[in-house]
Design a protein around this nucleic acid. Structure first.
Lengths: 245, 245
DNA sequence: AATTTTCATTTGTCAGACATTTAAAAGTCT
DNA sequence: AGACTTTTAAATGTCTGACAAATGAAAATT
């Protein structure tokens, strides 16, 4: 593990990169203990503070974890789906909010990916998934539900659909995309009428899932995507009109 | 921006979280300058080293960038698709390699997501995309191509297909998934015979894309997925047989 | 007016100190 | 001997103070 003296970047960034590369290409394996901060400082010929800044960078990416005490230190972390998922949400959420991604583009992406789950979900869904989805539909149909609760239930519904695919990689990718979309979805005001329509589509999806009918799931998801985009466009049009007067 | 005195976590982690939250919920906007390290140290009542460790954590997530000099400091960073993409690859690659994700599961996820692009790609593809894909197919058909070059070309081919969807959110998600899969794909030994078959399927995909025929793209992608899984299973079976003797 | 110099501010790095945590090792008691 | 307590060494966490290096603004000079 060497750092490049010609590199213009900060020393702590260079050291973080060196260690990160060692982890990625397998020179450091899961749960292996890194040398102590003092040893690393000596190896890289920098101060302990600089090493610490490098380690904090790696910790922020969940690449290492640290433990205090005599036999503690920094250990290569086995990154979990949970952690990866959390990071993906942070990154994707900011990416969408900071780069003026249009509602339609985000909506297309989200439902396209969800549609990708349909065949697997149709095959692997079990009673639990169906029960969760029907329970969420029931919650959604209760009058007086706050917009927040509605959205939370919507996420839970789609989450169950994704999980029905029984593929942790898809779940991790999709759940991240769905949650990252939430802030954008919040521009929509869900009227009683639109909720009714969405509940219809949710019911269609659940029925199709129960019938192992992948094609119908996809069809309903396309309808849902189209309808959601309509709602979004209406809000945007209303805003523009309001700003013109 | 406050830190919670009851939180057991490291001070630098708490401070990083406080600033991260402020960025996520919009209290700090893009390109806004954070207080100087000395000021932050005073605000949070910690030492400058602790503040610096917190800032390095945020820098590792591309949430801030720092600049030296009189009017420098830490600025809220507009995270780009490039950066987000890079981070996703790092995270996903490690996630797959560290969590014993089976070849089949990863393969299913990858091709399912790619299939999600098909309808959009069929609609938005232009001559450039087709040209890129045909050029990669041509490269793939050259004899004596090294395994590395073959894989690189394969990635470029699929990247072009994804980009044809003309949806940056999909591109960012998909390109990450495809690249993260590469290390797993490397277990496969691409014989001349298997390359021939894959080139056939690539040609089918490109032809269907040219014809705006989304359904055929999806069909070919399913075939490609199935075939790739067969190749993977063969390798795994061969390994098991070898280890038994 | 253009150029150069000075200067204040800020991040990057270093050195050394002490606090805190932790598990092993040593000691003590029954 | 075995269970419990104390000690101890090693590691991270935090703080202080210092200096280097970069950088843009302001002042001085040509």
């Amino acid at each position: 593990m060497k750092i490049n003296p010609n590199d213009a970047a900060d020393l702590s960034a260079q050291i973080a990169k060196a260690i990160r590369d060692a982890i990625i290409n397998g020179q450091l394996i899961v749960d292996e203990r890194l040398p102590s901060e003092a040893e690393l400082a000596e190896q890289f010929d920098v101060s302990r503070s600089t090493v610490r800044e490098a380690l904090k960078r790696l910790a922020a990416q969940s690449l290492i974890r640290t433990q205090r005490g005599a036999f503690g230190g920094a250990f290569v972390n086995r990154i979990s789906f949970e952690e990866a998922h959390g990071q993906q949400i942070t990154t994707s959420t900011l990416l969408l909010s900071m780069n003026a991604v249009s509602f339609d583009v985000a909506c297309d992406a989200r439902f396209a990916m969800e549609r990708a789950c349909a065949p697997f979900a149709a095959e692997h869904r079990n009673a639990d998934h169906l029960a969760t989805m029907r329970a969420e539909i029931h919650r959604q149909s209760q009058p007086g539900l706050s917009d927040e609760s509605w959205c939370a239930s919507d996420v839970a519904f789609h989450r169950a659909l994704v999980d029905a695919a029984d593929n942790p990689v898809l779940s991790y990718q999709l759940a991240g995309a769905v949650e990252a979309m939430q802030p954008l979805m919040n521009i929509i005001t869900f009227t009683a009428r639109s909720r009714e329509r969405i509940i219809e589509l949710h019911t269609d999806i659940t029925d199709a899932l129960e019938a192992h009918d992948s094609a119908s799931i996809e069809k309903s998801l396309i309808n849902l995507s189209t309808y959601t985009k309509t709602l979004g466009d209406d809000v945007i049009a209303a805003k523009q009109k309001a700003s013109q007067t």
